[in-house]
Nucleic acid binder design. Structure first.
Length: 722
DNA sequence: CCCCTACTGATCCAC
DNA sequence: TCAGTAGGGG
């Protein structure tokens, strides 16, 4: 057997991992060490050397993007698509299992996946039914409670009846929510895993079937697994199926989302007879960058232990810039990028990394001023956009009339005269009669329990859906979707929103049609429509449409994981910002922040620049932050201070901006001060609450004793100070 | 039903 | 500070 095409391009460590015996294997893959490559080659090895069929291999990832990339690379390596390979995210695979065994899972055949937005609506409804005060019990809090429980594998019934009012109330909501979901066949993300885990526990034969079928399971980013995912894997593997897990404990940054770093730390104890391979050779960064990363992460205790190395040369030192304030910091970054581009480099090779999204604004402002094209990652994902979610709700209703979450969403979108009163009547009917909202609509109309106008409107809603559904099964997917978007009037509705927003919304709707046009189900057994609906629920879609212009990439440290850039800026390296002040509370959180810093550093290939601001305006207040302790943990010899603190001269642009704003405030204050008592010839006495603008357009807000608060134009108001 | 005002709260976010 | 949103008034 010629194995050269599988092993030739690999280094020794990588080969060891790829060609390891069919036993439990932990691959500790450092940043930039060729992790994906090892996974892909391992799969090829299993198929060609160990002679496993594609159907007997399961490969699990966390994101659809990762799954897609891996699939592409396997196809390229093997020169053919690996048909039958079980490939996907934890949720995608769990969903597939539940579709196949819906009876065993005690679900209706056409159960629907709901995302967090739908989930919140359902929870709100349950809480309203329980007559809980929304201000005292925020639905969002209940939502995260429920999701956290599910991630831990805990059902409502297992939450003990405690005297703790909070726990009792939450458990009550959780219970009501579970019942509501069960009644209307809704399954949330956590439920996919929880339910399929239970299916295996309750059906030994079914579990045995899969244990015979799968001969190997591979898991990517193992350090990100949470409790239920880990349990899911353990039950499935059950000492019968060997696992290859790949991950890096030093890059575990999702503890706040339920990920358990212990899962990778204890893997060797929990999975019998396992071996471990470390990938420590880095192919990405200069040795300076790696030494910085190694020095930093050495401050964490209880690591599995890794030391990145490279054959690359030292490269440039790490720059540290102490900015006067956040504007100065932003200008400095913009200036550096100008230099970089003048030297003939690409802007798309530059990334700006920050701890929290709020930090991007100041930098964006500077980029706009200096005309640096940029692109911000994150924000709303495609399938989270309002117009897309509305369109999907219609599509879901065409497919399955009893989707309560979808009815709630679009019963009055676009507005067709169904008011809150009518909707809550429909909800009441549905609850009293134990039927779905769709059934409630129909029943109430035939019973005549809706008034004339409301009845007409509801009938109109029913007709729209029924008309769309009529003959829907004969149409190709994209034609159907196009029809839905047009006939639901969503295009007109969203298109008429003012500004460029409407335009963008229509474009997105068109994009949705395009997406269906080249949609391919990865599960051939499902009908296209339900496959598409499931995909839309489980795949957030590409972050954003590709930007054509060469632009700087801006993102949070979290979303930078897995990416690499020749030039990386880590901004806001200040205590309180990074590490974030909220992470000082719990033990272990600082270590996670340190790992996040490690992730940031190891994104850089050639050059790393860190900046911090001595003063920063945060939540409307000027704050003085100390330099991040993480900077001190990097060997000082690797860092070069760009400018010594005591020689700082204020940049010209800053001085001007600052002086102007100071002058404005001063001149306004000269006239009236906030809180000052004033008198008006007509409105009488009042207190100054606020003012804005300057010169003849300046306006002032006064809270009058008799009239309440009013905005007045200062030059006409004839106010007198008292 | 839409717009304005007042209020709140504020890391990180895939599925 | 400011963004997002709930509730009142036109």
């Amino acid at each position: 057997m010629d194995v050269s095409h599988i092993l030739d391009s690999l280094n020794d460590e990588q080969r060891q991992a790829v060609a390891a015996p069919m036993r439990n294997l932990l691959v500790l893959a450092g940043a930039g060490s060729g992790k994906t490559r090892v996974l892909v080659h391992r799969i090829a090895w299993l198929m060609e050397i160990e002679r496993l069929t594609p159907t007997s291999i399961m490969a699990v990832t966390f994101t659809n993007k990762a799954a897609k990339e891996m699939r592409g690379r396997i196809e390229k390596l093997l020169d053919l698509p690996p048909r039958g390979l079980w490939f996907g995210t934890f949720h995608g695979i769990a969903h597939r299992l539940l579709r196949a065994h819906w009876r065993d899972a005690n679900l209706p055949e056409n159960f629907q996946i709901i995302d967090s937005d739908d989930q919140l609506r359902v929870i709100k409804r349950v809480m309203r039914d329980l007559q809980l005060d929304e201000t005292k019990w925020p639905p969002r809090q209940a939502q995260s409670f429920i999701n956290a429980q599910k991630d831990e594998g805990i059902r409502a019934e297992y939450i003990e009846a405690t005297s703790d009012l909070y726990m009792r109330t939450m458990a009550q909501v959780y219970k009501g929510y579970e019942e509501q979901c069960q009644r209307s066949g809704m399954v949330d993300f956590g439920e996919l895993l929880l339910r399929s885990h239970e299916v295996w526990l309750n059906n030994p034969q079914l579990l045995a079937h899969y244990q015979e079928r799968f001969r190997h399971i591979l898991v990517d980013e193992f350090q990100d697994t949470n409790t239920i995912q880990y349990a899911w894997l353990r039950v499935l593997a059950g000492n019968r199926i060997p696992l290859t897990v790949v991950g890096d404990d030093d890059q575990s940054i999702y503890g706040w989302r339920g990920a358990k770093i212990e899962n990778i730390q204890h893997f060797q104890n929990d999975f019998a007879d396992s071996m471990q391979v470390k990938l420590e050779r880095n192919y990405r960064s200069t040795s300076t960058i790696l030494d910085a990363a190694n020095g930093l992460i050495a401050n964490n205790g209880s690591r599995l232990g890794k030391q990145l190395w490279t054959e690359e040369n030292e490269g440039e030192p790490i720059d540290l810039y102490s900015a006067f304030n956040e504007q100065d910091e932003a200008n400095y970054v913009a200036d550096c990028i100008d230099d970089w581009v003048k030297k003939g480099n690409l802007r798309s090779d530059v990334a700006i990394l920050y701890r929290s999204n709020a930090q991007s604004r100041v930098i964006e402002d500077a980029f706009i001023r200096q005309q640096v094209p940029y692109r911000v990652y994150g924000g709303l994902r495609f399938y989270d956009r309002m117009e897309i979610r509305n369109a999907l709700a219609y599509i879901r209703l065409v497919h399955y009339r009893h989707d309560d979450a979808a009815v709630e969403r679009v019963i009055n979108v676009p507005p067709r005269g169904i008011g809150n009163k009518t909707i809550s009547d429909i909800r009441d009917h549905a609850r009293n009669e134990s039927v779905t909202l769709w059934q409630a609509c129909n029943e109430m109309i035939s019973l005549g329990s809706l008034r004339g106008r409301a009845a007409n409107a509801v009938q109109k809603f029913i007709d729209v859906i029924e008309d769309l559904a009529d003959g829907a099964t004969d149409l190709p997917l994209h034609t159907l979707v196009e029809k839905v978007i047009n006939e639901s009037m969503l295009k007109e509705f969203h298109g008429s929103e003012k500004g460029e927003k409407g335009q963008a919304r229509v474009e997105n709707l068109n994009e949705l049609i395009n997406a269906t046009r080249d949609f391919e189900a990865d599960d051939e057994e499902m009908e296209p429509l339900s496959a598409f609906i499931a995909q839309a629920a489980l795949d957030a879609g590409e972050n954003q449409a590709e930007e054509h212009e060469d632009s700087v990439q801006m993102m949070t440290l979290h979303s930078a994981k897995g990416l690499e850039y020749p030039l990386v800026f880590m901004v806001g390296m200040e205590e309180g910002l990074f590490p974030h002040s909220r992470s000082a509370e719990e033990p272990g959180r600082i270590e996670e922040e340190r790992r996040l810093c490690y992730v940031g550093i190891t994104r850089a290939m050639e050059k790393l620049v860190m900046t911090h601001a001595e003063t920063r305006r945060l939540y409307g207040q000027e704050k003085y932050h100390a330099v991040s302790p993480f900077i001190r943990e990097i060997p000082a010899s690797l860092i070069q201070e760009v400018r010594l603190k005591n020689t700082v001269t204020r940049p010209v642009s800053f001085q001007r901006a600052n002086d102007e704003s100071w002058a404005t405030a001063a001149s306004s204050e000269a006239a009236f001060q906030l809180g000052q008592l004033v008198s008006h010839p007509i409105f009488g006495e009042g207190t100054v609450l606020n003012y804005e603008g300057q010169g003849p357009h300046a306006r002032i807000q006064v809270n009058f004793l008799s009239e309440g608060s009013k905005w007045l134009v200062m030059s006409y108001a004839k106010l007198e100070a008292l």
